[in-house]
Nucleic acid binder design. Structure first.
Lengths: 116, 116
DNA sequence: TAAATAGCATAGAGAGACTATGGGTAGATT
DNA sequence: AATCTACCCATAGTCTCTCTATGCTATTTA
């Protein structure tokens, strides 16, 4: 490969933690399952690379927002299942609020409606 | 201060170029004016720090999306006015499309509506 | 037995935002 | 005359987050 692709991110930077936390509100899941869930719910628009996902999960663990335990999957494989903790649920609320506020603000800048 | 505040960004990373380009569709502006415009239109939710703004303007210049010329402001000061070029207008369209697509996808993940 | 799928995890690079810093000018106030 | 406030540009260094690349294991399927 002669030159490297300056690839655009598959996600909006800063939103991954929120997406993971939200996914875990439905049920405990392992990493692979989280990535699949986000991909499917977003109609393949959002792709969570493993190199983004696992570091993010480590962050969430360190923050005490999720806990993890090794279990067997339905397909008989070892996997680490992540469960939302109450602090994580609270954090999700904070991030959702901030995100929606930002999106609304960006919307105002992007709209052509001039105030003055 | 024993530990450093891990401050959240004042912007959604990746959206600054788009916001600047959009701002310049209204009229040529200098850097300071661009920052003020974004701040005001967003009701103070989005704050463009100088250390983010000027590097971003350099990027836009390098990409050929804007051009710059030194002029005098209404308040009789030297300032560098940035004007949108046609390539920049085209780029804005691309970024708007991608952004809206991502926001829609995130919305699907964040909604509670389960498909299956 | 080879390949595909399911899984976890880290190292290194790059992009983009932030803090901090350094300039400088015009006009109003003390 | 000095100082303050608003206006204006720009870079260096740091941090966070995502990506690519890599390495490992285990199970199912072709």
């Amino acid at each position: 490969m002669l030159f490297k692709m300056a690839k655009k991110p598959d996600l909006l930077p800063g939103t991954l933690d929120m997406l993971i936390l939200k996914t875990l509100t439905r049920a405990p899941l392992h990493g692979y399952g989280i990535a699949l869930s986000i991909k499917r719910l977003s109609d393949d628009v959002l792709t969570v690379e493993e190199g983004s996902l696992y570091p993010a999960l480590q962050r969430l663990l360190l923050q005490g927002w999720v806990k993890a335990e090794w279990k067997m999957t339905e397909t008989n494989r070892r996997a680490r299942f992540y469960t939302l903790r109450s602090a994580g649920r609270k954090q999700l609320g904070v991030e959702l609020t901030q995100f929606e506020q930002m999106i609304a603000a960006i919307g105002r800048v992007l709209s052509d409606a001039q105030v003055a």
